[in-house]
Amino acid sequence: MTLDLAALFREHHDSLVRVLYRRTGDRDRAEDIAQETFARAVAAPPRNPRPWLFAVALNLVREDGRKAVRQGRRLELYRAESPQSSPAADQVLERSDDVRAVQEALATLPERDREALLLKAEGFNYDEIAETLGLAKGAVGTTLSRARRRLVEAYRMQGGRHVAS
């Protein structure tokens, strides 16, 4: 089975990095894990790439996280934008606070709830979420409902302001 890696990259790279960044809070780590995931796809081309890629990537995050705990490594929650693309300093600080508040609220969710929420944000349907996370499809709605509620409540508990729509 051949793999059109360029097409796979174009189709899924940004989405994968976005989920990984939201999951880890570390852009470089997200890039690394995404690359590792695509490399594995080269070694064994998956039949259904999207759930496969995200399942492998999230597994790598979990394993990497366990190692990080053992090593006592601190996770980087947020890394500021590069100067050339940064908005004004006060906007950066405000946004940084908001990002941190959301990251911290997200971190309070159980792993599965958090990942289901992030996959849904990438447009995954229930079948794909179920396949990626190893859930029964019938449990996805409950998982997402609980995840959304907990995220909002955790954010409010931190005194986070409502995000402007």
């Binding site: 890039e31 500021a80 959301v102 990251q103 609220a105 944000a121 959304r148 409502h162 995000v163 729509s165």
Partner: peptide
């Protein structure tokens, strides 16, 4: 549920990926 959905999805959208690495 819809209100929670709206707010949660907006919170997730806050976590935009910073610019591409060097």
């Amino acid at each position: 549920a819809r209100a929670f959905q709206l707010e949660a999805d907006r919170l997730v959208e806050v976590l935009a990926v910073p610019s591409l690495p060097a």
